[in-house]
Amino acid sequence: MRILQRELYAFLGAIRFFTRIPVSNRVPHSPEQLNHAARYFPAVGIIVGLVSAIAFSVASVFFPEAVCVVIAMATSIYITGAFHEDGLSDMTDGLGGGWDKARILEIMKDSRVGSYGVIAIAMTLLAKFTLLSALNASWMPLLLVAGHAFSRYCAVLVMAGMTYVREDALSKAKPLATQLTRNALIVASAFGLLPLLLLPVSASLAGVCLGLLITIWLGRKLQKWLGGYTGDCLGATQQLSELAFYLGVLAVIQ
Protein backbone atom coordinates (compact mmCIF):
# COMPACT_ATOMS: atom_id res chain seq x y z
CA MET A 1 0.00 0.00 0.00
CA ARG A 2 2.84 2.40 0.80
CA ILE A 3 4.41 1.73 -2.59
CA LEU A 4 1.14 2.44 -4.37
CA GLN A 5 0.64 5.62 -2.38
CA ARG A 6 4.19 6.75 -3.12
CA GLU A 7 3.72 6.18 -6.84
CA LEU A 8 0.35 7.95 -6.81
CA TYR A 9 1.91 10.94 -5.06
CA ALA A 10 4.75 10.95 -7.58
CA PHE A 11 2.28 10.90 -10.47
CA LEU A 12 0.22 13.71 -8.95
CA GLY A 13 3.42 15.64 -8.27
CA ALA A 14 4.33 15.42 -11.95
CA ILE A 15 0.87 16.69 -12.88
CA ARG A 16 1.24 19.61 -10.47
CA PHE A 17 4.71 20.47 -11.75
CA PHE A 18 3.97 20.30 -15.49
CA THR A 19 0.34 21.40 -15.79
CA ARG A 20 -2.27 23.77 -14.41
CA ILE A 21 -4.48 20.85 -13.35
CA PRO A 22 -5.38 21.32 -9.65
CA VAL A 23 -3.81 18.81 -7.27
CA SER A 24 -4.73 18.40 -3.61
CA ASN A 25 -2.50 20.14 -1.07
CA ARG A 26 -2.34 16.82 0.78
CA VAL A 27 0.04 15.54 -1.88
CA PRO A 28 3.53 16.16 -0.43
CA HIS A 29 5.78 18.61 -2.22
CA SER A 30 9.53 18.27 -1.83
CA PRO A 31 12.70 17.88 -3.93
CA GLU A 32 12.56 14.13 -3.23
CA GLN A 33 9.02 13.92 -4.54
CA LEU A 34 9.97 15.83 -7.67
CA ASN A 35 12.91 13.53 -8.28
CA HIS A 36 10.66 10.50 -8.00
CA ALA A 37 8.04 12.12 -10.26
CA ALA A 38 10.38 12.33 -13.27
CA ARG A 39 9.32 8.85 -14.41
CA TYR A 40 5.79 10.14 -14.97
CA PHE A 41 6.73 12.95 -17.35
CA PRO A 42 5.48 10.97 -20.41
CA ALA A 43 2.33 10.00 -18.47
CA VAL A 44 1.58 13.70 -18.09
CA GLY A 45 2.00 13.91 -21.87
CA ILE A 46 -0.74 11.32 -22.28
CA ILE A 47 -3.08 13.47 -20.17
CA VAL A 48 -2.22 16.64 -22.09
CA GLY A 49 -2.70 14.79 -25.37
CA LEU A 50 -6.06 13.39 -24.25
CA VAL A 51 -7.36 16.80 -23.20
CA SER A 52 -6.20 18.31 -26.49
CA ALA A 53 -7.79 15.44 -28.42
CA ILE A 54 -11.09 15.95 -26.61
CA ALA A 55 -10.96 19.67 -27.40
CA PHE A 56 -10.32 18.87 -31.07
CA SER A 57 -13.15 16.33 -31.23
CA VAL A 58 -15.69 18.64 -29.59
CA ALA A 59 -14.65 21.59 -31.76
CA SER A 60 -14.91 19.46 -34.91
CA VAL A 61 -18.68 19.34 -34.43
CA PHE A 62 -18.89 23.09 -35.00
CA PHE A 63 -15.79 24.28 -36.86
CA PRO A 64 -13.56 23.46 -39.85
CA GLU A 65 -10.49 21.31 -39.23
CA ALA A 66 -7.98 24.18 -39.26
CA VAL A 67 -9.89 25.96 -36.51
CA CYS A 68 -10.06 22.74 -34.50
CA VAL A 69 -6.26 22.36 -34.76
CA VAL A 70 -5.81 25.85 -33.34
CA ILE A 71 -8.19 25.02 -30.49
CA ALA A 72 -6.33 21.78 -29.74
CA MET A 73 -2.97 23.59 -29.74
CA ALA A 74 -4.31 26.39 -27.55
CA THR A 75 -5.70 23.81 -25.12
CA SER A 76 -2.33 22.10 -24.71
CA ILE A 77 -0.60 25.45 -24.20
CA TYR A 78 -3.16 26.52 -21.63
CA ILE A 79 -3.12 23.27 -19.66
CA THR A 80 0.69 23.34 -19.42
CA GLY A 81 0.97 27.09 -18.85
CA ALA A 82 3.24 27.35 -21.94
CA PHE A 83 5.89 25.68 -19.75
CA HIS A 84 7.73 23.94 -22.59
CA GLU A 85 7.32 26.80 -25.06
CA ASP A 86 8.98 29.08 -22.53
CA GLY A 87 11.88 26.64 -22.27
CA LEU A 88 12.30 26.62 -26.05
CA SER A 89 12.33 30.41 -26.11
CA ASP A 90 14.91 30.70 -23.32
CA MET A 91 17.20 28.04 -24.76
CA THR A 92 17.09 29.58 -28.24
CA ASP A 93 17.85 33.03 -26.86
CA GLY A 94 20.77 31.62 -24.88
CA LEU A 95 22.33 29.63 -27.70
CA GLY A 96 21.66 32.39 -30.20
CA GLY A 97 23.00 35.30 -28.16
CA GLY A 98 25.65 33.70 -25.93
CA TRP A 99 29.28 33.09 -26.78
CA ASP A 100 30.29 30.89 -23.82
CA LYS A 101 28.66 28.72 -21.18
CA ALA A 102 28.38 31.43 -18.52
CA ARG A 103 26.81 33.94 -20.89
CA ILE A 104 24.41 31.39 -22.38
CA LEU A 105 23.17 30.39 -18.92
CA GLU A 106 22.83 34.04 -17.94
CA ILE A 107 20.68 34.80 -20.98
CA MET A 108 18.56 31.70 -20.43
CA LYS A 109 17.87 32.83 -16.86
CA ASP A 110 16.70 36.27 -18.01
CA SER A 111 12.89 36.51 -17.99
CA ARG A 112 12.90 38.82 -21.02
CA VAL A 113 12.32 37.28 -24.44
CA GLY A 114 14.75 38.10 -27.25
CA SER A 115 14.39 37.96 -31.01
CA TYR A 116 15.73 34.39 -31.22
CA GLY A 117 13.13 33.19 -28.72
CA VAL A 118 10.25 34.97 -30.46
CA ILE A 119 11.25 33.52 -33.84
CA ALA A 120 11.64 30.02 -32.36
CA ILE A 121 8.18 30.03 -30.77
CA ALA A 122 6.50 31.55 -33.83
CA MET A 123 8.12 29.11 -36.25
CA THR A 124 7.41 26.10 -34.02
CA LEU A 125 3.74 26.95 -33.58
CA LEU A 126 3.36 27.68 -37.29
CA ALA A 127 5.05 24.42 -38.25
CA LYS A 128 2.96 22.44 -35.76
CA PHE A 129 -0.25 23.97 -37.10
CA THR A 130 0.78 23.26 -40.70
CA LEU A 131 1.67 19.63 -40.00
CA LEU A 132 -1.45 18.86 -37.99
CA SER A 133 -3.71 20.60 -40.51
CA ALA A 134 -2.24 18.47 -43.30
CA LEU A 135 -3.35 15.25 -41.61
CA ASN A 136 -6.75 13.64 -41.92
CA ALA A 137 -8.93 14.64 -38.98
CA SER A 138 -9.61 11.01 -38.12
CA TRP A 139 -5.97 10.57 -37.07
CA MET A 140 -5.80 13.69 -34.92
CA PRO A 141 -6.87 12.40 -31.47
CA LEU A 142 -4.53 9.41 -31.62
CA LEU A 143 -1.67 11.50 -32.98
CA LEU A 144 -1.98 14.10 -30.23
CA VAL A 145 -1.82 11.49 -27.47
CA ALA A 146 1.15 9.68 -29.01
CA GLY A 147 3.00 12.89 -29.88
CA HIS A 148 2.69 14.50 -26.46
CA ALA A 149 3.73 11.30 -24.69
CA PHE A 150 6.69 10.45 -26.93
CA SER A 151 8.09 13.99 -27.00
CA ARG A 152 8.19 14.07 -23.21
CA TYR A 153 9.94 10.71 -23.28
CA CYS A 154 12.61 12.32 -25.46
CA ALA A 155 13.12 14.91 -22.72
CA VAL A 156 13.49 12.07 -20.20
CA LEU A 157 16.19 10.55 -22.40
CA VAL A 158 18.10 13.83 -22.22
CA MET A 159 17.81 13.75 -18.44
CA ALA A 160 19.04 10.16 -18.36
CA GLY A 161 21.97 10.65 -20.68
CA MET A 162 23.30 14.09 -19.82
CA THR A 163 24.40 16.13 -16.81
CA TYR A 164 22.39 18.94 -15.26
CA VAL A 165 24.61 22.01 -15.46
CA ARG A 166 22.84 24.79 -13.63
CA GLU A 167 23.81 24.83 -9.96
CA ASP A 168 22.45 28.18 -8.84
CA ALA A 169 19.19 28.55 -6.97
CA LEU A 170 17.82 31.10 -9.43
CA SER A 171 17.06 28.67 -12.22
CA LYS A 172 13.59 29.41 -13.59
CA ALA A 173 12.94 25.88 -14.80
CA LYS A 174 14.52 23.21 -12.65
CA PRO A 175 14.16 19.62 -13.82
CA LEU A 176 12.34 17.03 -11.76
CA ALA A 177 15.50 14.98 -11.42
CA THR A 178 19.12 15.35 -12.31
CA GLN A 179 19.60 11.58 -12.49
CA LEU A 180 17.22 8.75 -13.34
CA THR A 181 17.37 5.21 -12.02
CA ARG A 182 16.92 2.23 -14.30
CA ASN A 183 13.45 1.56 -12.87
CA ALA A 184 12.44 5.18 -13.45
CA LEU A 185 13.56 4.96 -17.06
CA ILE A 186 11.58 1.73 -17.56
CA VAL A 187 8.40 3.37 -16.25
CA ALA A 188 8.98 6.44 -18.42
CA SER A 189 9.59 4.20 -21.44
CA ALA A 190 6.30 2.40 -20.91
CA PHE A 191 4.26 5.62 -20.80
CA GLY A 192 6.25 7.23 -23.61
CA LEU A 193 6.23 4.34 -26.07
CA LEU A 194 2.99 2.41 -25.51
CA PRO A 195 0.78 5.18 -27.02
CA LEU A 196 2.69 4.68 -30.28
CA LEU A 197 0.67 1.48 -30.72
CA LEU A 198 -2.33 3.69 -31.48
CA LEU A 199 -0.81 4.53 -34.86
CA PRO A 200 0.25 2.32 -37.80
CA VAL A 201 3.64 0.75 -37.12
CA SER A 202 5.30 2.43 -40.10
CA ALA A 203 4.01 5.85 -39.07
CA SER A 204 5.14 5.39 -35.47
CA LEU A 205 8.60 4.25 -36.57
CA ALA A 206 9.00 7.24 -38.87
CA GLY A 207 7.91 9.63 -36.13
CA VAL A 208 10.18 8.00 -33.55
CA CYS A 209 13.18 8.09 -35.88
CA LEU A 210 12.81 11.80 -36.59
CA GLY A 211 12.04 12.57 -32.94
CA LEU A 212 15.16 10.74 -31.78
CA LEU A 213 17.29 12.35 -34.48
CA ILE A 214 16.32 15.86 -33.39
CA THR A 215 16.88 14.86 -29.76
CA ILE A 216 20.36 13.54 -30.53
CA TRP A 217 21.19 16.64 -32.59
CA LEU A 218 20.05 18.95 -29.82
CA GLY A 219 21.83 16.89 -27.18
CA ARG A 220 25.14 17.17 -29.04
CA LYS A 221 24.67 20.91 -29.42
CA LEU A 222 23.95 21.28 -25.70
CA GLN A 223 26.92 19.13 -24.80
CA LYS A 224 29.18 21.29 -26.96
CA TRP A 225 28.08 24.64 -25.56
CA LEU A 226 26.93 23.82 -22.03
CA GLY A 227 28.40 20.44 -21.17
CA GLY A 228 24.90 19.24 -20.26
CA TYR A 229 21.31 20.48 -19.99
CA THR A 230 19.07 22.79 -17.99
CA GLY A 231 15.33 22.72 -17.35
CA ASP A 232 14.80 25.05 -20.30
CA CYS A 233 16.60 22.56 -22.55
CA LEU A 234 14.12 19.85 -21.55
CA GLY A 235 11.23 22.08 -22.61
CA ALA A 236 12.95 22.76 -25.92
CA THR A 237 13.55 19.04 -26.43
CA GLN A 238 9.86 18.33 -25.89
CA GLN A 239 8.78 20.97 -28.39
CA LEU A 240 11.23 20.06 -31.14
CA SER A 241 10.81 16.29 -30.82
CA GLU A 242 7.01 16.65 -30.88
CA LEU A 243 7.31 18.63 -34.10
CA ALA A 244 9.70 16.08 -35.62
CA PHE A 245 7.38 13.23 -34.59
CA TYR A 246 4.44 14.80 -36.43
CA LEU A 247 6.63 15.35 -39.49
CA GLY A 248 7.63 11.69 -39.59
CA VAL A 249 4.06 10.45 -39.15
CA LEU A 250 2.82 12.81 -41.84
CA ALA A 251 5.40 11.52 -44.32
CA VAL A 252 4.06 7.96 -43.96
CA ILE A 253 0.34 8.48 -43.46
CA GLN A 254 0.01 10.89 -46.37
Results as ranks from 00 to 15, higher is better:
1 M>P: 10
1 M>L: 13
5 Q>G: 10
6 R>P: 00
6 R>E: 14
7 E>H: 14
9 Y>L: 03
11 F>P: 04
13 G>M: 14
14 A>G: 12
17 F>K: 10
17 F>I: 10
19 T>D: 04
24 S>K: 08
25 N>V: 14
25 N>S: 15
27 V>L: 08
28 P>K: 13
32 E>G: 13
36 H>F: 11
36 H>A: 15
38 A>V: 12
40 Y>N: 05
42 P>V: 06
42 P>A: 11
44 V>T: 05
48 V>D: 02
49 G>V: 09
52 S>N: 06
52 S>P: 04
55 A>F: 02
55 A>L: 06
57 S>Q: 11
58 V>K: 06
60 S>T: 12
61 V>W: 15
67 V>Q: 11
70 V>G: 15
71 I>L: 15
81 G>P: 12
83 F>H: 13
83 F>I: 05
84 H>T: 03
84 H>D: 10
85 E>S: 13
91 M>R: 03
100 D>K: 08
100 D>I: 07
100 D>R: 10
108 M>D: 08
113 V>R: 13
118 V>Y: 09
120 A>K: 09
121 I>Q: 04
124 T>Q: 09
126 L>I: 11
127 A>M: 15
128 K>C: 09
129 F>T: 06
131 L>T: 03
135 L>E: 07
136 N>V: 06
140 M>A: 03
140 M>W: 02
143 L>G: 02
143 L>H: 01
144 L>Y: 04
146 A>P: 01
149 A>Q: 07
152 R>D: 01
152 R>Y: 02
155 A>K: 02
157 L>S: 03
158 V>E: 01
158 V>I: 15
162 M>Y: 09
162 M>N: 03
163 T>H: 14
167 E>V: 09
168 D>G: 02
170 L>H: 15
174 K>V: 07
176 L>W: 02
177 A>Y: 08
178 T>Q: 09
184 A>R: 13
185 L>A: 03
185 L>D: 03
187 V>C: 07
188 A>D: 01
188 A>I: 05
189 S>Y: 05
189 S>T: 15
191 F>Y: 14
192 G>T: 08
194 L>Q: 07
198 L>Q: 03
198 L>H: 03
201 V>F: 15
204 S>D: 05
211 G>C: 11
213 L>H: 01
216 I>A: 12
217 W>S: 14
219 G>R: 08
220 R>F: 06
222 L>N: 11
224 K>Q: 14
226 L>G: 03
230 T>V: 11
230 T>Y: 07
231 G>Q: 05
233 C>D: 13
233 C>M: 10
236 A>R: 01
244 A>I: 07
245 F>H: 01
246 Y>M: 07
247 L>A: 15
249 V>H: 00
251 A>I: 04
251 A>Q: 05
252 V>T: 13
